[in-house]
């Protein structure tokens, strides 16, 4: 399809969003990223049954942690899309990039 999405998005591949861990996201922020989003399969369509549902809960948890430390919960998000929805993948990449741009660079990086 040769769809384009913002070049600032760095993709970390995981076998399933169920592998997403609170510490994994926190470490990304420690390394200086401005935002993190998790792209999981559509709810109810997880190959491992509940991986994407668990990921969503963990993302919610991290939102709380980021609020606590003053980075803001908006810097992390969970999106759902199927493997065939390239359009949707690109659209979320743009949406999240735009959101993070409005929030500005991570205060951790200064």
């Amino acid at each position: 399809m040769r769809l384009s999405y913002p070049s600032n998005v760095k993709v970390v591949k995981l076998p399933c969003t169920g592998r997403v861990d609170v510490l994994l996201i926190l470490r990304a922020f420690e390394s200086g990223v401005d935002g993190v989003y998790v792209a999981g399969c559509m709810e109810g369509e997880c190959h491992f049954l509940r991986g994407n549902l668990r990921a969503r809960r963990r993302v919610e948890y991290v939102k709380g942690l980021l609020e606590e430390v003053g980075l803001g919960g908006g810097r992390v998000e969970m999106f759902n899309m199927s493997a065939s929805q390239g359009q949707r993948f690109a659209q979320f990449a743009r949406e999240m990039t735009e959101r993070i741009r409005l929030l500005g660079p991570s205060p951790v990086r200064k």
Partner: peptide
């Protein structure tokens, strides 16, 4: 990690 993020943010 929370402590590091917070203190990094505070410089």
């Amino acid at each position: 990690s929370e402590l590091r993020l917070f203190w990094k943010k505070e410089g």
